[in-house]
């Protein structure tokens, strides 16, 4: 078996790389794929928290590299889904503890055993990014409809395009606020796609459920009622190759905006007078 190695990256921090990783990974595993997630954010590991696996980690990627354990021993199985594994980052070391070659070697070994190897990339464009990208042949660039995130995504896309090993990259717009996009207070998905001229793999709406799901250590894709969870499941399906249409949140929002405006107009009038 030769699995696909996909790096999830963004340039800017805080746009939801790790959340995306946890959710896409879980969704792919739910769809019956064998998935391993590799956290390469040495010193700032968080993927274990989002998956609720923080208490089960015995060995980390650094232990594998420094041969204190075998690769297999360092893989932590998910609580619910036996198809899903995590290779955690070390919390006590920095980015220099693992080299590009070592990471590439780990990815090569993992893709023999798994359908998908999802690499969680640290923020920035320095060595941590170079390491994370080293073993991957595909990339998902996470951005939000904010200027700083889009600018950084553009930079990352430029760097990815320069890498021969990266065969394709797709754009994921996270924390989308369809209400604000519909009222033109925020860039729309079309604006972002046009500016970055990249292919879109999905849009995840802003969802307070992400916070509560993180609190619980359970990815939101497991919540069947959540809109963000649904969007993440769709992304996973598109990765597998199914043709799932992107949900048009804006159309829904436009309608609800109009209704809200209509009522607030009368309410405001009452207040002013």
């Amino acid at each position: 078996m030769t699995g696909r190695v996909i790096v999830i990256t963004s340039g800017k921090g805080g746009v939801g790389k790790t959340t995306t990783n946890a959710n896409i990974g879980t969704a792919l595993a739910r769809a019956g794929k064998k998935v391993v997630m590799v956290d390469t954010d040495l010193g700032l590991r968080n993927l274990d928290l989002l998956l609720g696996l923080e208490n089960r980690i015995v060995y980390t990627i650094v232990d594998v590299v420094e041969e204190r354990c075998k690769l297999k021993q360092a893989l932590v199985k998910d609580k619910k889904n036996p198809n899903l594994c995590l290779l955690a980052a070390a919390q006590t070391r920095d980015k220099s503890a693992v080299t590009e070659e070592q990471l590439k070697d780990i990815c090569d070994q993992l893709k023999e055993k798994f359908d998908f190897v999802l690499v969680d990339c640290p923020a920035g464009i320095e060595q941590g990014f170079q390491n994370a990208v080293a073993g991957a042949s595909e990339a998902i660039v996470v951005t939000t409809p904010e200027m700083s995130a889009v600018r950084d995504a553009d930079r990352i896309i430029g760097l990815l395009e320069a890498k021969e090993e990266i065969k394709s990259y797709k754009l994921l717009i996270n924390r989308y606020r369809p209400n604000m996009a519909a009222s033109k207070d925020m860039m729309s998905k079309d604006d972002v796609v046009e500016i970055l001229s990249a292919e879109l793999i999905g849009i995840i709406p802003e969802d307070t459920g992400i916070i509560t799901s993180t609190n619980k250590g359970e990815p939101i894709v497991n919540d069947d009622d959540s809109l963000a969870g649904r969007a993440y499941r769709n992304v996973a399906q598109r990765i597998i190759g199914e043709d799932v249409p992107i949900i048009d949140f804006e159309e829904e929002a436009k309608l609800s905006n109009k209704i809200k405006k209509f009522f607030s107009k009368f309410l405001n009038k009452g207040k002013e007078n």
Partner: peptide, 23 residues
């Protein structure tokens, strides 16, 4: 009719310019 200042256009224009300079 939308009469208010649409800040997203400002964002798009500023971004375009800064990306040109970056690229």
């Amino acid at each position: 009719q939308n009469v208010k200042d649409e800040s997203k256009n400002t964002a798009v224009n500023r971004l375009r310019l800064v990306l040109m300079q970056d690229r």
